[in-house]
Simulated assay, not measured.
Amino acid sequence: MNAPVLLTAGQPTGTSTLLAETAARRGLGHAVVTPETAARLAGRTLHWYGGPLAADRFLASAPGCDLALLEPHDAWLAELPREFTGRRVELTTLSDAWGSTRPQFVKPPSDKQFPAAVYADGSRLPTGGERIDPDTPVLVSEVVTFAWEYRLFVLDGALVTASRYARFGRLDVAALGADPHEPEVRAFAASFLAACAGSLPSATVVDVGLVQDPDSGVDRWAVVEANMPWFAHSYAADPDSVLDVVLRATGPLGSVSAHDRGFLRSRSGPDGTAARPVAG
């Protein structure tokens, strides 16, 4: 019987290389996507690690490919109680964000159509380009300072591995077990994951951080964002556990649970714009 295959995008990253090595050690196959990949791997169980644009292009070129991708809902962060976000967060459109006259943090919810950053006002936001139009969804939040930031890999509502990835916006990677805030990170993760049970796919990535409030002098833990496991750097997280999350978040449609079917990514047409549900 042929082993499942982990597909990775053509442009390798440190995480894709690490996951490919981990998959090989566990007896899975690995293939880098090329124009011939779909035909060569027809009938095999496929999983995916790579960007959403690369995934859309591959799936558009292989309409018969049985590969379902899970992702959090665009509105998840905006709908999370403020006790977990620590700030005002709104899901809106790029055209609405253009009208802002004050600094705000703006990011696409999942796809990376433009850089997530603090924009001094709406006039600094992009006004055109590939896959950008006035109706492009964006998350807009008030500006806060995250002193420490951590990436959590979550499976079935539980934290399975994590890594610190930044301090004061600068890359600073360390395994969670080597970080002084490990107990606080785990406690906060358990709290918000219990509170938002059912609002996330069974396999997901959530970034959290410690917010510094210069006015009150009181630091607080907050959710930064939720991400697709199949497009998330692993940093210093355990690669075997990361691969477990990626394998659950990508794979045959028939293996997707009833709960997770509510988090299926839509497939795009060859031009990358005409979407249709993966579930058909």
Results as ranks from 00 to 15, higher is better:
residue 270 P to T: 14
residue 238 D to T: 09
residue 172 D to M: 10
residue 106 V to G: 06
residue 186 R to F: 07
residue 169 G to I: 04
residue 267 R to K: 11
residue 120 A to W: 07
residue 252 P to N: 00
residue 100 S to A: 14
residue 165 Y to E: 10
residue 266 S to P: 12
residue 98 W to C: 04
residue 209 G to C: 00
residue 84 F to H: 11
residue 198 G to F: 00
residue 77 L to M: 13
residue 26 R to T: 09
residue 191 S to Q: 14
residue 251 G to Y: 06
residue 206 V to G: 04
residue 25 R to S: 15
residue 196 C to H: 07
residue 100 S to M: 11
residue 256 V to W: 10
residue 90 E to N: 03
residue 50 G to S: 10
residue 212 Q to N: 11
residue 255 S to E: 15
residue 134 P to A: 03
residue 221 W to I: 00
residue 223 V to L: 08
residue 140 V to T: 07
residue 206 V to M: 04
residue 14 G to V: 14
residue 213 D to S: 09
residue 150 Y to E: 02
residue 132 I to S: 03
residue 100 S to L: 14
residue 222 A to T: 06
residue 17 T to Y: 01
residue 112 K to M: 13
residue 147 A to V: 15
residue 206 V to T: 10
residue 14 G to P: 05
residue 70 L to D: 06
residue 208 V to D: 00
residue 97 A to N: 03
residue 223 V to A: 02
residue 224 V to I: 11
residue 199 S to L: 13
residue 12 P to L: 05
residue 264 L to Q: 06
residue 1 M to S: 15
residue 247 L to V: 03
residue 280 G to S: 15
residue 177 G to M: 09
residue 23 A to H: 05
residue 37 T to H: 11
residue 2 N to C: 08
residue 7 L to T: 07
residue 84 F to P: 01
residue 83 E to I: 14
residue 182 E to R: 14
residue 186 R to K: 10
residue 142 E to D: 15
residue 38 A to H: 09
residue 82 R to L: 10
residue 162 A to D: 06
residue 2 N to F: 12
residue 79 E to M: 08
residue 180 P to M: 09
residue 146 F to P: 04
residue 259 H to F: 02
residue 49 Y to S: 02
residue 191 S to C: 12
residue 37 T to V: 10
residue 235 Y to T: 08
residue 97 A to C: 03
residue 93 T to C: 09
residue 192 F to E: 00
residue 208 V to R: 00
residue 269 G to K: 04
residue 221 W to V: 01
residue 236 A to T: 00
residue 25 R to V: 13
residue 68 A to V: 04
residue 61 S to L: 11
residue 163 S to Q: 05
residue 210 L to I: 06
residue 99 G to S: 12
residue 39 A to L: 09
residue 193 L to F: 00
residue 40 R to L: 15
residue 3 A to Y: 06
residue 50 G to I: 08
residue 66 D to A: 08
residue 47 H to P: 08
residue 149 E to Y: 07
residue 77 L to C: 11
residue 149 E to N: 03
residue 198 G to A: 04
residue 166 A to R: 11
residue 232 A to V: 04
residue 45 T to A: 14
residue 42 A to E: 13
residue 40 R to S: 14
residue 8 T to K: 14
residue 245 V to W: 06
residue 233 H to Y: 13
residue 76 W to I: 15
residue 57 R to I: 10
residue 105 F to L: 00
residue 178 A to H: 14
residue 107 K to N: 01
residue 77 L to H: 09
residue 243 L to S: 02
residue 43 G to L: 05
residue 128 G to Q: 14
residue 265 R to D: 08
residue 149 E to A: 13
residue 258 A to W: 06
residue 61 S to E: 14
residue 37 T to P: 03
residue 9 A to P: 08
residue 145 T to C: 12
residue 108 P to C: 15
residue 221 W to M: 01
residue 158 A to Q: 14
